[in-house]
């Protein structure tokens, strides 16, 4: 004959270990592997999505194992089916989310960075032509017999600059673009625009102002007209 105390003790259950039989050590191992994979890939590649996708693989394996354990007894059949359906839905959704968001945000980042290139190229082109056009017009409007050299007209329009240094800095359209001018021995003027921060296509390109790899455009102005060229 069991005492009341014994009956009460037998009716009290022991709570299952975490994940119903999946020991805590599994969870810890999975977390360590995920941390290691994520950190290693991120430090190596510097790409957050590559790291997240790499770290997601051990997480996915763990969640799949967890789902299998979750459907073991003592859960009811209805409960097991519900857990399986929820798990499959969530895992599919998370995988799709990673794929969709990674492609979208990479596109967004490229678009934002590309906007900077487009913006700077337009500003550089506008700055060079705006600087050169009035000088060309002045040169062409001179009487034929009293024509001054193109370089002379240009230097007069920027008379405050010190032209003995070879290359002078002109006023740029914004802080993002710097404009430089120099003259050639045959009397032509070379205007060069260099982006202050935006990188160009060639990372090793040597810009005229000593920078490396920035956007650069060049406009050659002589008596025949203007020729515009994107150098980097």
């Amino acid at each position: 004959m069991k005492s009341v105390h014994d009956m009460e003790r037998h009716r009290t259950i022991r709570l299952p270990r975490i994940a119903g039989g999946m020991p805590v050590v599994w969870l810890v191992i999975a977390m360590v592997v995920t941390c290691g994979t994520f950190s290693g890939v991120y430090i190596t590649t510097g790409d957050i999505w590559t790291a997240a996708l790499a770290g997601g693989i051990p997480a996915l394996i763990y969640m799949a194992g967890l789902t299998v354990h979750a459907t073991c007894t003592p859960a009811s059949r209805r409960c097991r089916i519900a857990v399986m359906l929820v798990a499959v839905t969530v895992l599919t959704g998370i995988s799709a989310e990673f794929m969709v968001l990674s492609s979208r945000t990479r596109w967004q980042a490229d678009m934002i960075a590309g906007t900077g290139v487009s913006y700077d190229r337009s500003a550089m082109m506008s700055a060079l032509f705006s600087t050169a056009s009035p000088v060309f017009a002045s040169y062409q409007q001179q009487p034929q017999r009293k024509r001054r050299a193109m370089a002379e007209i240009f230097k007069d329009s920027w008379s405050t600059r010190d032209w003995t240094t070879g290359m002078v800095t002109l006023d740029g359209p914004s802080e993002r673009v710097n404009v430089y001018a120099s003259t050639t021995p045959d009397g032509a003027i070379v205007l060069t625009a260099v982006a202050a921060v935006t990188p160009g296509g060639d990372a090793a390109f040597a810009n005229v102002n000593g920078c490396i790899g920035r956007l650069q455009s060049r406009l050659l102005l002589n008596g025949k007209g203007m020729s515009y060229e994107i150098e980097n």
Partner: peptide
């Protein structure tokens, strides 16, 4: 990632199983 894909689901599964028992 650790909380959403590991700790959270583990707690939930443990809770479901414990509730069933």
């Amino acid at each position: 990632m650790l909380i959403s894909y590991m700790v959270g689901p583990a707690l939930l599964v443990w809770g479901i199983r414990a509730r069933a028992r």
